[in-house]
């Protein structure tokens, strides 16, 4: 079978996204279902069929999402409306849109989430917390316990006070 000529193929746009908080173990399939559900909520089945979203790659806190051309703003709105995956709070932030994946892959290195470094327990607001420090002054505190762990987002200066 002869392949379809390039001029007759559907045109796509690629969106580089970053997932927050860093350190989430998220695979492409899970992200795809979450994005598709969010887009279906906003635009309906017909809208999603027109947008044609798909997750091309997902690793190190970054993902590349493909959609049909002229639907990139709708995908960005759908990503902004995505707040949790499997009952875990998450933010999917769009960074760049491009017509090819090559430029996004070059940019992706810049946005890869740094590996968090767990440290010794710290007291905060009368409780004991497990801190995870990131590049810069960002510190996340995890409540000690087995389930329903509360998570606080602070800075080093907040802990010093």
């Amino acid at each position: 079978m002869k392949p379809r000529p390039p001029t007759m193929r559907g045109k796509h746009r690629y969106i580089l996204v970053r997932t927050d908080p860093p350190g989430l173990d998220l695979d492409g399939r899970t992200l795809y279902y979450a994005v598709a559900e969010s887009l279906t909520d906003l635009y309906g089945d017909a809208g999603v069929a027109r947008i044609q979203p798909s997750v091309v790659s997902c690793s190190d806190g970054c993902a590349i999402i493909r959609c049909s051309r002229a639907a990139e703003d709708e995908v960005i709105a759908g990503l902004a409306a995505l707040t949790n995956i499997h009952d875990k709070k998450i933010a999917v932030r769009s960074i760049l849109t491009s017509g090819t994946m090559r430029s996004l892959r070059q940019q992706k290195e810049r946005w890869n989430a740094p590996a968090p470094s767990p440290c010794e327990d710290v007291p905060f607001q009368g409780k004991s917390w497990i801190p995870v420090r990131y590049r810069g002054t960002k510190v996340d505190l995890f409540e000690k316990g087995f389930k329903n762990q509360e998570r606080l987002f602070l800075t080093e200066e907040d802990l010093e006070e």
């Binding site: 927050d20 703003d73 960005i76 990503l79 902004a80 707040t83 709070k89 933010a91 932030r93």
Partner: peptide, 12 residues
């Protein structure tokens, strides 16, 4: 901070 939106997200 997970609920904060970027300018790009707000525009969309």
């Amino acid at each position: 901070i997970l609920e904060m939106k970027s300018r790009r997200d707000m525009t969309a």
